[in-house]
Amino acid sequence: MAALLGARLTKHLQAVLECENVFLWSDSQITLHWLKSDKSKTLQRFVKNRVNEIHELTGSNQ
């Protein structure tokens, strides 16, 4: 949930501040694994929906 809130905040700040290069950081190994995983079908529905929204919001940001 923290990663999703960060992605939403980043999207808002990018629109307001007109900045392009944004880096999102997390120390949660599980969250980073979920975001990098290609096996989204094996994730639970709640996690899968959050991961998909994060990908939609962040696009090419790291």
Rank of each mutant, 00 (worst) to 15 (best):
L5M: 11
C19G: 04
Q14I: 06
E20A: 12
L24C: 10
Q62I: 04
H12A: 11
R8K: 10
A15H: 08
Q29R: 15
W34R: 10
E53A: 10
K48W: 03
E56M: 12
H12Y: 01
S40M: 12
L32M: 08
D38I: 08
L57D: 07
T10F: 02
L57Q: 05
N21P: 00
Q44M: 05
I54N: 00
V22G: 10
E18Y: 12
H33V: 06
T10Q: 05
L24Q: 03
G59P: 05
S60E: 13
N49D: 03
L35N: 06
R50N: 08
A2C: 04
R8Y: 00
K39A: 09
S60N: 07
S40Q: 14
R8V: 03
Q14E: 11
K11A: 12
L17Y: 13
V22A: 09
A7V: 11
M1A: 05
A7L: 04
F46I: 13
L43Q: 11
T10P: 03
S28Y: 01
Q44E: 15
F46V: 10
A3W: 00
H33E: 11
V51L: 05
N21T: 09
Q14F: 00
A2I: 00
S37P: 04
F23P: 00
S40P: 01
F46T: 11
K48C: 15
K48M: 13
W34M: 08
V16F: 05
L24G: 07
S60T: 08
R50T: 06
K48D: 13
L43N: 03
L17R: 15
S26W: 00
S28C: 12
K36W: 01
D27R: 14
L35H: 05
D38A: 11
H12K: 06
L17W: 08
F46K: 03
H12W: 02
E53I: 03
A3F: 01
S37I: 06
I54E: 01
W34D: 00
V51Y: 01
L5C: 10
K41V: 10
L17M: 12
